[in-house]
Amino acid sequence: MTGLAEAVRGLSTEDLRSLLLIRHFELSLLRLFEAGQIGGTTHTCLGQEYIPVALSPLLRPDDYVFSNHRGHGHLLARYGDAPGLLAEIMGREGALCSGVGGSQHIYHHRFLSTGVQGESLPVAVGTALRLKGTGALACVHVGDGTWGEGAVYEALNMAALWRVPLLVVVENNGIAQSTPTHRHLAGTIAARAAAFDLPHIRLATTDIGTIRAELAPLVAAVREESCPIVVEFVTHRLGPHSKGDDTRPAQELDEARAADWYRHAAGGDLDLEIQALVGRIVADVSARPLSVWERA
């Protein structure tokens, strides 16, 4: 994978920082869970960090991002607030949503995540309807597994009929929790988008520069022509669905690891710097008092 190595070497410091922040944040979460310092559940985006990092400069401050259960990277790539997110997950002072939302229910500026598959697509269509004509858009992240939900098709139908500025980002990591895509999805996502006459692009690369170059004109068209699009990333989930629940065979995991950008950034100065930074954030947030929820 010399191509991948070159691509990682060619990243801007800003992009690499963002990638590393997400990677070390997620790894820290898994360690905190193992140590019993976090309860509940979490879904890390290990291996998929490059998607929100690539999208980040294509989004405007007045765009809405609708995220899902696997949303830490989406938030960090956009707002970078690792202490606030960790405090939210740990229920500590400074939490983005007072610790009420937790890992998968976060509303911060124009970022909103929910925990039910497919639920946010119709909501995103409503928000996009409101944004239509302003140049802003609604970006909604879904997985391959989300395409099992009827709400997806109801929403795409309306998005196409009403021509709302909706950017659907599909992170097709080949597996829905424990069920491989070929066992849960008939046909293709491309064909499903085509059924609604929606443009669809499939991006198998992890190269951030290539992704941006491909997407920039398409995202501009979403804004200017108010035409929804479906962007499908072929990606890899490196980690478990949640925690310690990975049942994939070793060969599959090896393939996922081979595609991992981090192999080419590990051990570098920036890697060590961000690792230390996240370590300090974990220490700081862990020492904070519990969050307080002031009920309406």
């Binding site: 809405y64 909103l112 639920e119 946010s120 697509l121 119709p122 909501v123 995103a124 269509v125 409503g126 928000t127 996009a128 309807l129 409101r130 944004l131 609604a138 009827g150 709400a151 109801e154 929403a155 139908n157 309306m158």
Partner: peptide
């Protein structure tokens, strides 16, 4: 289901 969601999305956006 979706039109109820669209209503909520409109409401969230002001």
């Amino acid at each position: 289901g979706a039109i109820t969601g669209v209503g909520a999305g409109l409401a969230l956006a002001g």
